[in-house]
């Protein structure tokens, strides 16, 4: 589904990703862990197409297409979804209005008919149960006045609505209490399917108790320095990132 080769990315002239390679197969769940500043969020943002990231080299292929060549909205239409670490507030724009526009833009892109208000609402009512949100959230301005937990749940709700083939969850677990974490994880798990892949970007392994990954990668100094299964996350939890950074430093 996603193939990243030797990706090098700079922000403000400073190299953040330095030869990162990673392959995500269809239906797989990957966790990317690493210390602060290792480039985890940069990776998520580059895949989603945010401005301000300078790609110095390497390739990102998504379903056989050169992802780096596409506008952010086209990436979204192709099935890339980013659950933001810090979802932004948009005053005056109803949550449901943004979602309807986005969903129908993707449907137009795929040559499918747009959902009318009735079908859209039916889908909304079904998906909103997953994240245990009240319907009134739909009519409030996007993320405005939402608590941290509500914002994250809203991200997962949008993800469930848009049914992306590749979901990137950028530190979605940060700042959540255990109940909210379970709800978010439940929403994430509901999307697990043979034709969908998930990348969990996280600092802690706690989320991985609820969304169990097929693979765990450790990102340090802009590269994947170690890959393994669920046990690698547990080892990181027990021993910290120190040993990784040492070995990465030694290798460089």
């Amino acid at each position: 589904m996603l193939k990243i080769s030797d990706l090098r990315v700079a922000v403000d002239g400073k190299t953040i990703l330095n030869g990162l390679s990673l392959e995500i197969g269809t239906g797989e769940v990957h966790a990317i862990m690493g210390p602060n500043g290792s480039g985890k969020s940069t990776l998520a943002n580059v895949i989603a197409g945010r401005d301000g990231y300078e790609v110095l080299g390497g390739t990102v292929e998504f379903k056989g297409k050169d992802l780096l060549d596409l506008d952010p909205e086209v990436r979204a239409h192709e099935g890339v979804f980013l659950a933001f670490q810090y979802p932004v507030e948009i005053p005056g724009v109803a949550n449901i209005a943004l979602l309807k526009e986005g969903l129908n833009a993707a449907r137009r892109y795929r040559g499918e008919p747009e959902l009318d208000a009735l079908d859209f609402l039916k889908l909304v009512r079904e998906k909103i149960k997953l994240v245990e949100m009240k319907e009134e959230f739909l009519y409030r301005s996007v993320n405005e006045g939402f608590s941290g937990g509500e914002k994250k749940r809203n991200e997962i709700f949008q993800m469930a609505m848009l049914e992306p083939s590749l979901s990137l969850l950028d530190e979605t677990d940060s700042g959540l209490d255990i109940d909210a974490l379970k709800i978010v994880a439940g929403g994430g798990n509901s999307l697990r399917a043979q034709d969908r892949s998930v990348i969990l970007v996280t600092h802690y392994q706690r989320l991985l108790d609820y969304i169990v990954p097929d693979y765990v990668h450790v990102l340090a100094e802009g590269r994947i320095v170690q890959s393994g299964d669920k046990d690698l996350a547990l080892k990181l939890e027990a021993e910290g990132y120190g040993w990784i950074e040492e070995s990465a430093g030694a290798a460089a």
């Binding site: 506008d71 952010p72 909205e73 990436r75 932004v88 943004l98 526009e101 986005g102």
Partner: peptide
């Protein structure tokens, strides 16, 4: 970027 990531031109 948020809006575009959700699919809006």
């Amino acid at each position: 970027f948020y809006c575009r990531q959700r699919g809006l031109a």
